[in-house]
Design a protein around this nucleic acid. Structure first.
Lengths: 223, 223
DNA sequence: TATTTTTTTTTTGGATACAATATTTTGCTG
DNA sequence: CAGCAAAATATTGTATCCAAAAAAAAAATA
């Protein structure tokens, strides 16, 4: 007999979560362009739910800065701004720099080996002209790195996760350009060296620089 | 003729905002103790509104970590944890350190003078045995300092503001103990010196240390 | 009595109806 | 035709209703 779908409270299948995830995805991937007007009613219809979960999702996204209220005209997608993008990367640089210093103190030799493999895979993909999987290797690298913090520094971890998501909004076509890819890979190699040396302060500096480079590349190859 | 109160959309007098502010205040000041169970219905009755604005407030507070869901038993106030407090201060140290470096680059001589006056006032109050206004001078000092970032780095500014609020939860009785006050005042003096020297990196280090000291004092004189 | 099953209660999730307000449109007046 | 006033419309805020799920309580059974 088929067990009835348990509609748990924090269930990712709840209308609220579903709406939130869908809407967020459309915002981050640019399917909803800046200045696009969003009304609860229209979104509710679009997603096949009532206004309630849409409202919840919109308010949550407003806190994240992914939509903004437009008074009695509903919500709208904020325009992209260099200042905002720049600030996001700057905060990321500071937080991820610190995170790296923390990681440095707890990372095992096995972890470092796994990271090395990822970088090698990325490099091979690059050399053989496949730029598609690079983005994935990149993501895996960072996930593995910061995943080490998930239990010990849950707040830092989740702030970093969130910020990495937000900048996606500004990062649609980076890491497809050879120069950006090269910089990214060599950045990851430096990170590994710093980790090998077990010097927290060096780790922090290297990671800050790495994020700043990512910012520059995002700026450069934008559009 | 008296103009009817315009009940604007983001009005701070809306039921949602009112409920959110009240609830948050009670959480931060400890009127609602850890493990206290919160149900929408009960809070709605208590605040004289319907469940809807209460729900909104609870969800917002959940994102901030000030309440947590307890499944189908509503919400509850999370227990205080040294780890969490410690992490909050650590993140603050990193972010405020960076903020100081930014401030250092744009602060005017007049701003520095205003800050000096605040420190002097605090010191005088301390020497004459009045410890009550110290907390206010302290707050003013930080408000003035970071206020300089409000327009240029709005995200950094608001994250720092939020985090300063959160730690209040753990900081009910600090800055009434002589040792903590002395450390705080001497910390502010060092900050002023670093600003006078216009050395961003020094500013960053000094501020980090200042926040770490605040953490230690909070830990020490807790309860 | 202990354990399992069933029923009842509590509580949130979601939908909808209504109220308040901001915006837009329309119409009037000079 | 421009400018202002008023009506109409669109949209969110709030209250309430119903359903679903979980927790708690009660009942049945070994």
């Amino acid at each position: 007999m088929i067990k009835p779908l348990s509609k748990s409270l924090k269930n990712p299948q709840s209308a609220r979560e579903k709406t939130y995830r869908l809407l967020k995805k459309q915002l981050l991937t640019g399917q909803l362009r800046p200045n696009k007007r969003l009304t609860e009613e229209a979104l509710a219809k679009k997603f096949g739910v009532s206004r309630t979960p849409v409202r919840d999702a919109l308010h949550k996204l407003e806190l994240e800065g992914l939509v903004k209220t437009a008074g009695a005209r509903g919500f709208c997608v904020p325009e992209e701004s260099f200042e905002d993008m720049s600030e996001l990367f700057e905060i990321r640089a500071v937080l991820e720099g610190h995170a790296m210093a923390c990681v440095c103190k707890i990372i095992t030799q096995e972890n470092i080996q796994s990271l090395k493999k990822l970088v090698q895979s990325a490099e091979q993909a690059f050399l053989s002209g496949k730029s598609d999987p690079i983005f994935d290797y990149n993501t895996q690298f960072h996930d593995l790195l910061y995943g080490l913090l998930a239990s010990q520094k849950p707040r830092l971890f989740s702030i970093i996760e969130d910020m990495r998501e937000y900048v996606l909004r500004y990062r649609k076509s980076t890491l497809t350009h050879p120069k950006g890819i090269r910089r990214s890979i060599s950045g990851h190699k430096k990170i590994l060296m710093a980790l090998d040396l077990r010097e927290p302060q060096l780790c922090e500096r290297i990671m800050r620089k790495h994020v700043y480079e990512a910012k520059e590349d995002t700026l450069l190859y934008k559009g």
